[in-house]
């Protein structure tokens, strides 16, 4: 693989806190290696700002290996940037070339208020899980042996594919309605596909959907932008399954 250096213009959304108005600022970074990760380029930019006596850009990040779901940059009009099935931290600078201008914004959604610069508050996701995204089993360990209930491999694999969601919120950021349907459907699918999720199957979907509406996420209009941007390639068929689950639960609801 051929490595190269580049000079770039970075336009970043700067916002002191949730209340103050934000604006774009433009910065130049030099000699960026194509082998760097996108966040390492931001480390370089921040070191530069610090030395110039300016406030470094605040951004969320932690594992830097694409699994914790904390990084969340909207890069050149796409959540997590130009690569498919990718997180911001796994985007590498070989995606860009010398002289490029890169525009970086925070996730934009009413339910994700800006905390500072590129950092947003995604605690609404935790509250959606609190509304029913679990199996109400105790943690005593006094359960049955793990192999007592065989689970069809295909179903187990489908449940796993949905459970891979990292809760980053890119699906919401990509959606013109700021809908959290992909996130929600991943959890509903994961649990409703498994025998352990059956007892609460109906109440779960109703409660979680109500919570999602309450948190200010929009409705789904099936544009599939969420699937296209999801770093874990969670499929929109999960949304179809969610709708079916919702329909079943609503029709058989016993008040």
């Amino acid at each position: 693989m051929q490595h190269y250096k580049m000079n770039l213009t970075i336009q970043v959304w700067r916002q002191k806190n949730a209340l103050e108005k934000g604006q774009f600022e433009s910065y130049q970074v030099k000699d960026i290696s194509s082998e760097m990760s996108f966040l390492e380029m931001f480390d370089v930019l921040n070191e530069q700002l610090l030395q110039e006596g300016k406030d470094p850009v605040a951004f969320d990040h932690d594992c830097r290996e694409g699994i914790c779901g904390m990084c969340s940059m909207y890069i050149n009009g796409k959540p997590h940037g130009p690569w498919q099935a990718n997180t911001t931290c796994q985007l590498h600078m070989r995606a860009f070339k010398d002289g490029d201008t890169i525009v970086v914004e925070p996730w934009r959604a009413q339910a994700f208020p800006v905390i500072k610069d590129l950092v947003v508050d995604r605690s609404a996701f935790d509250r959606i899980i609190q509304a029913g995204g679990y199996v109400s089993v105790g943690t005593s360990g006094n359960t049955i042996d793990a192999n007592v209930i065989p689970i069809e491999k295909q179903k187990a694999d489908m449940a796993f594919a949905a459970a891979m969601c990292i809760g980053c919120g890119a699906c919401v950021a990509a959606c013109k309605n700021s809908s959290a349907m992909l996130f929600l459907s991943a959890k509903v699918s994961h649990l409703s596909l498994l025998p352990q999720g059956q007892p609460e199957r109906k109440i779960r979907v109703l409660n979680m959907l109500n919570k999602m509406d309450e948190e200010g996420f929009g409705a789904c209009t099936n544009t599939n932008a969420c699937e296209a941007t999801c770093p874990k390639e969670i499929s929109v068929t999960n949304i179809a399954r969610l709708n079916l689950e919702y329909l079943n639960a609503s029709l058989s609801k016993q008040d």
């Binding site: 199996v135 359960t143 793990a146 209930i149 689970i151 449940a159 994961h190 352990q196």
Partner: peptide, 24 residues
């Protein structure tokens, strides 16, 4: 206690890898 952990996690809905038999 190692064995209890697996039982506990399966009960919670942790989707471990499975064989075609449906077993872990």
């Amino acid at each position: 206690v190692s064995s209890n952990i697996i039982d506990q996690c399966v009960a919670q809905g942790v989707p471990f890898a499975r064989e075609y038999s449906g077993l872990l």
